[in-house]
């Protein structure tokens, strides 16, 4: 043993040395360092936990913000849609009104034009009568007395003979309203006569309207409901043509 260098004194010195060193290192280095390591580990875990919580909070906030933004966008879109709809409705209304107005104006204009034409035709009526008489005189070469001629013409135009409507003779009428069409506007007394005649047949409650249509050339057409009494010149010519053919 001595030759290997193992010596109890040296050996014990080393053991003693190690023990002292271990105790000193434990107090001076290991304990503080291990405590520091634990401390730091805890701190890091705490920090990570905090970071996680913060991240969660931030994610929540972001989600909320997104939701709010979404809602705002939805609201805005809704508003825009509503506004558009309202505008469209308004526009349609305006257009409808304008169209209605335009058609009213057009109607009025047409009515006025018809009245004007009727008035002109009424003014022309006597002249047309005179012209017709002159033409007839030339044609048949003899002159009827003036009064007779006029009565004839009147009858031709108005279809009213000695206060009675020609077409209505021997006809039964029933209905609520009647329409009388003449080639030229009727004079007031003729209208009166026609009206009276019709009312006497249909009853006092019925209404009578008058219309001018130069294309029937002369005479009267009376429409009651779906019944048409054709006393016009054109109708007579037509029926003549039928019978001739």
């Amino acid at each position: 043993m001595e030759k290997l260098g193992i010596n109890l004194g040296f050996f014990l010195f080393q053991v003693f040395n190690f023990t002292i060193l271990a105790l000193l290192m434990y107090a001076l280095a290991y304990k503080p360092i291990v405590r520091m390591l634990e401390n730091r580990k805890n701190k890091i875990a705490q920090g990570l936990e905090d970071a996680r919580v913060a991240a969660e909070a931030r994610a929540n906030a972001e989600k909320e913000a997104k939701a709010i933004l979404q809602e705002a966008q939805n609201n805005a879109a809704q508003k825009v849609r509503e506004a558009t709809e309202r505008a469209e409705i308004a526009a349609r209304e305006i257009i409808t009104q304008a169209e209605a107005q335009a058609s009213k104006i057009r109607e009025e204009a047409r009515m006025e034009a018809a009245q004007e034409r009727d008035r002109i035709l009424l003014e022309l009526r006597s002249q047309i009568a005179s012209l017709a008489i002159a033409a007839a005189q030339k044609l048949i070469g003899e002159a009827l007395d003036e009064k007779r001629q006029h009565a004839l013409l009147e009858e031709f135009f108005s279809g009213v003979k000695s206060g009675k409507v020609v077409v209505l003779e021997g006809v039964e009428l029933s209905g609520a309203s009647a329409e009388v069409i003449s080639a030229l506007p009727l004079l007031p007394h003729e209208q009166e006569a026609v009206k009276r005649d019709i009312l006497s047949k249909m009853g006092e409650q019925a209404t009578v309207s008058f219309r001018v249509d130069p294309s029937i050339m002369g005479g009267l057409i009376v429409k009651v409901g779906d019944k048409i009494l054709d006393g016009s010149v054109v109708g007579q010519l037509e029926s003549l043509k039928q019978s001739l053919l």
Binding site: L4, N7, F11, Q14, V15
Partner: peptide, 12 residues
């Protein structure tokens, strides 16, 4: 390189 040192540590 002295046997006392490793043997002391091993003993401990």
């Amino acid at each position: 390189t002295d046997l006392n040192f490793p043997f002391a540590l091993a003993f401990i």
